[in-house]
Simulated assay, not measured.
Amino acid sequence: MTLKHIFTVLPQYVLPHHFLSGLMSKLTHCQNPAWKNLFIKLIIRLYGVDMNEAKFQNLDHYSSFNDFFTRELKDGARPIAPALDALACPADGVVSQAGPIEDGRIFQAKGHDYTALELLGGDAERAQAFKNGSFATIYLSPKDYHRLHMPLTGTLREMVHIPGRLFSVNAATVDGVPNLFARNERVACIFDTEAGPMALVLVGAIFVSSVETVWHGVVTPPSIGEPRTWHYQADAPVLEKGAEMGRFNMGSTIIVLFGQNQTAWNDDFVAGKPVKLGENIGRYAG
């Protein structure tokens, strides 16, 4: 472990992750106009948020900082890849990693990987669908649009909430904490698609006060106990390609999984690449 990791990563092991995230939730949902506008202006300035893309640019429109953080974009701000076999990027952000799932293992960073079985809550049948498939991990920073959308049309089959820690998901922590994405609290959504099974895994992080989906509302918290699973059959939601599927209340990471021989990422869809919601990131064989 480098000196940088000693100072940025090791202290996170002893932080009261969920207490701090609960405190952040209270702050970000505060509706005091002076406080929330000051907070919003600070984030816009620090991170260079492009308010020209926002549907509502007047800060008085937002009832709280979280309302601003999960803001809508103008119509047409994020065109969805039109080709029938194109995979649309599910979020604004930066590619953390993308590639094959090899022998059930997913690459995290140099020297670190984790299993699809761990990521998806320990259910062997759920994980088997993605054996030798492909994955993509996208990190959302505070400046990004924080709603998540469908890479292609899918019918929801299952959702599972897996409690866990809330380590940061910035690059330094991803490099320094083994099994990070399989340790943090997360919500895994499994869809049936023309490309076979698809998992969208919404990974929580420090100061992420909750994860929401459009069909369920807030899924987290609570953040302790055993995994909780919801199955969908006759009433299963069907979400079109490009449709909103969820959002982070504060920023984090989304991981996309597909089955074997079903998809191919574009050659330039590699670690470190900035991406925008809706852009073409690959093809599927459906």
Rank of each mutant, 00 (worst) to 15 (best):
G196S: 06
Q233P: 01
G225L: 12
L200Q: 13
T229A: 14
H231T: 13
E212P: 00
L257F: 15
P227V: 10
L180C: 09
M250L: 15
L239M: 15
T173S: 12
G225W: 12
R165M: 11
T229Q: 14
D192G: 09
A171C: 06
T220E: 07
L166P: 06
P237Y: 05
T229E: 10
R183T: 14
E194S: 14
K241L: 04
G246H: 02
N179Y: 11
V218N: 09
V218W: 05
F191P: 03
V214K: 05
Q233K: 13
F167T: 02
V219K: 01
V169Q: 04
C189A: 13
I254V: 15
S252G: 14
G246Y: 02
V218K: 13
P222F: 11
T229M: 11
S209V: 06
M198Q: 12
A234P: 00
T253N: 02
G176N: 08
P227M: 09
R186G: 04
T173N: 12
M198F: 08
P222S: 12
F207D: 05
L180M: 10
D175K: 15
G225Y: 12
D175V: 02
G176R: 04
G164A: 08
P221I: 07
E194W: 01
G196P: 03
P222D: 14
A243D: 14
S223P: 01
P197I: 03
C189I: 04
I206V: 09
R247Q: 13
A172P: 06
A234Q: 14
V238P: 00
L202K: 12
T220Y: 07
E185M: 07
T220S: 14
W215V: 10
V201K: 01
